[in-house]
């Protein structure tokens, strides 16, 4: 972003990478896949790189409002400084925070989740899917992320993206508004679960496996981690893969 600003350019959209997208070894592949799609399609975009900080979502959900606002206000200063108008992110937590919670602190942007962005690109014909790709005809199930679904009522965009791959989309028993959390929201990602009978991601993974799907599609870095761990726990990592939507599209595009 700094480079573009120095040249006096302003990108069409800012890609908010998020902490998982920047640092998580597995999830970096999703960031790279999404960027490759954007490059291939020729979308003018920028990232903040080292100027990006955590949105503050986990701090806020864990109760630390001060820390959240410190992060948020600093981010808003950077975003407003670059006169950012439109933000796309692959992380539903970043999406929810920037879209719904930054306005109260002076950050007003059009924010969309990458599932919505990908759906637009597909609808506009900008993403040319080969069909007959790796996923053709396969059974895929989609795990709704709480911060995309219930929190923001985005249920169809990710499904439209998956259907565009010419796959058989199978639904879990608890889906859409009734979707079961992966167990990572509300800052649970950053601590051990409280004592109980079972881990939430195992419960959800069992439900996903029960559909007979060959792959589990997600649209959230935390869900990706939780479902991947769940599949490993069930020793099914060899025949059931967990993918982010962007990875599936990029694979189909052969990039």
């Amino acid at each position: 972003m700094a480079e573009m600003a120095a040249k006096g350019e302003s990108p069409e959209v800012l890609f908010w990478v998020g902490c998982a997208g920047s640092f998580d070894d597995r999830y970096k592949a999703v960031t790279q896949a999404f960027v490759k799609i954007l490059n291939k399609v020729g979308v003018s975009f920028a990232v903040l790189g080292p100027e990006e900080a955590c949105t503050g979502d986990p701090a806020r959900r864990a109760g630390n409002e001060f820390l959240f606002q410190m992060q948020a206000v600093a981010n808003i200063q950077v975003l407003n400084g670059y006169e950012v108008k439109k933000v796309v992110t692959a992380c539903p937590h970043c999406f929810n925070t920037i879209k719904n919670e930054y306005p109260a602190l002076g950050g007003n942007y059009e924010v969309i989740h990458h599932s919505q962005f990908l759906q637009q690109l597909i609808n506009e014909g900008k993403v040319a899917l080969k069909g007959g790709g790796e996923f053709k005809g396969k059974k895929i199930t989609f795990h709704d992320s709480c911060y995309l679904g219930r929190a923001n009522n985005v249920y169809e965009a990710p499904r439209e993206v998956i259907k565009a791959l010419d796959v058989e989309l199978v639904e879990m028993k608890r889906c859409r508004t009734k979707g079961l959390c992966c167990g990572a929201g509300g800052a649970q990602m950053f601590k051990e679960p409280e004592p109980g009978k079972k881990d939430i991601n195992i419960e959800r993974t069992e439900e996903a496996l029960a559909t007979g799907a060959q792959a589990i599609a997600v649209g959230c870095p935390f869900c990706l981690t939780m479902m991947t761990d769940g599949v490993k726990n069930k020793e099914r990592e060899n025949d059931v893969k967990v993918y982010d939507l962007a990875e599936m599209i990029a694979k189909d595009m052969g990039i």
Binding site: S22, G49, P58, Q71
Partner: peptide
């Protein structure tokens, strides 16, 4: 500036391979 302990300077490292 991240919930995980990484250097903020490494935020853009994912782009190296791209």
């Amino acid at each position: 500036f991240s919930p995980w302990k990484f250097s903020p300077q490494d935020r853009f490292n994912w782009a190296d391979s791209v």
